[in-house]
């Protein structure tokens, strides 16, 4: 009888599956089907571009397709909520950026717990931001900029890309550490903010190297400083804030890989090792260097602590700067 044979087969298969699950994960086989890498943003942004490069190299390494799935919306909350609700079997992972650890510091209504609902797998890379000022600003160095800002307390504005964005955090941190009072003006993206700097409408914007460097080369934007502790190889002539009197000033855009909470440790270690292997390739290094970034391999434990420290730090900055009040 066909049906009963089929049922018997299914129950056997289910039993076998249960047995393997009990005996530990099928790490030996992982990944034996396509892995979905969720990008919680639209196509074409930095998260998407990094995810696609990483995905392509991982799939070459594994011989399994890595499917990029864009689930944009709600400032990445739609996509992250989706990932947090998937099976923690290693077949659904996501890319997350520094803003993942910034959002909870300024938003109350995130539909998941960013600290508890995710497994932290690996850090991919990081890139500094650059302070780009209007070309005719009466300041050429960070020190001169601080002086100029101090002479005009409460009169000047800088451009950011939304409350709790990396540009906003960088700007408020600058206000705190330099002891100045510059008002954040929110734009819908780094591009529009940069145009208003070029058009002499606001003083500066702390934006991505990718966006700023072409304008800097043409003299439409005056570079003041980068936000990393060391100078960027992509623009070594631009000083750091750290060396210009704001000791320890560091705001970096980074991308990491997360999965749903409760992933098997062996699979996490496997993913971490695979990703670090990609980071070590010249191809990936050159890919990130094109935009002033660099790979930053970390062990699972290091990345876990790294994210924890990020959550704590942005919480503190947000409280000190009163960012929750929308200032």
């Amino acid at each position: 009888m066909m049906p009963s044979t089929k049922r018997k087969f299914l129950s056997t298969a289910a039993g076998l599956l249960a047995a393997t699950a009990l005996a530990g994960p099928a790490l030996a086989d992982y990944p034996d089907s396509p892995v979905t890498l969720v990008v919680p943003f639209a196509t074409g942004g930095s998260n998407d571009i990094v995810a696609r490069q990483l995905g392509r190299q991982l799939s070459e390494m594994w011989g399994q397709p890595v499917v990029i799935e864009n689930r944009p919306g709600g400032g990445a909350t739609v996509g992250s909520l989706y990932v947090s609700e998937q099976d923690p079997d290693g077949y659904t992972i996501q890319i997350a950026s520094v803003t993942f650890t910034m959002n909870p510091a300024v938003q109350d209504d995130i539909p998941y717990d960013p600290r508890a609902d995710f497994t932290r797998i690996a850090l991919v890379g990081q890139v500094p931001l650059v302070i780009g000022a209007r070309p005719n600003i009466p300041a050429d160095t960070p020190e001169e900029l601080f002086e100029y800002l101090r002479q005009h307390p409460g009169e000047l504005s800088y451009g950011a890309t939304g409350v709790g964005s990396i540009q906003h955090f960088a700007g408020e941190l600058l206000n705190q550490q330099a002891g100045v009072d510059v008002e954040a003006i929110q734009y819908s993206g780094g591009g529009p903010a940069m145009v208003d700097v070029m058009g002499d409408h606001i003083e500066y914007s702390i934006g991505s190297m990718t966006q700023m460097l072409p304008q800097i080369v043409e003299g439409n934007i005056k570079p003041i400083a980068v936000t990393s502790l060391e100078r960027s190889p992509a623009a070594p002539e631009i000083p750091t804030l750290h060396e210009s009197g704001l000791e320890g000033f560091e705001v970096l855009q980074w991308w990491g890989i997360l999965g749903p909470a409760g992933m098997d440790e062996d699979i996490v270690e496997f993913l971490n090792a695979s990703i670090n292997e990609v980071l070590a390739t010249d191809e990936f290094r050159e890919f990130l260097a094109g935009d002033g970034g660099e790979p930053r391999p970390m062990s699972v434990q290091e990345f876990h602590d790294f994210m924890g420290a990020n959550f704590d730090r942005w919480e503190e900055v947000a409280v000190d700067a009163g960012m929750r009040d929308g200032n």
């Binding site: 196509t43 074409g44 942004g45 998407d48 591009g191 990718t210 966006q211 072409p214 304008q215 043409e218």
Partner: peptide, 18 residues
């Protein structure tokens, strides 16, 4: 913005130098 992303993916930064 999506269109610009297409250029960025290929390592070309649209801008005054293009």
């Amino acid at each position: 913005a999506v269109m610009m992303g297409a250029l960025l993916i290929h390592g070309i930064s649209p801008g005054p130098g293009l």
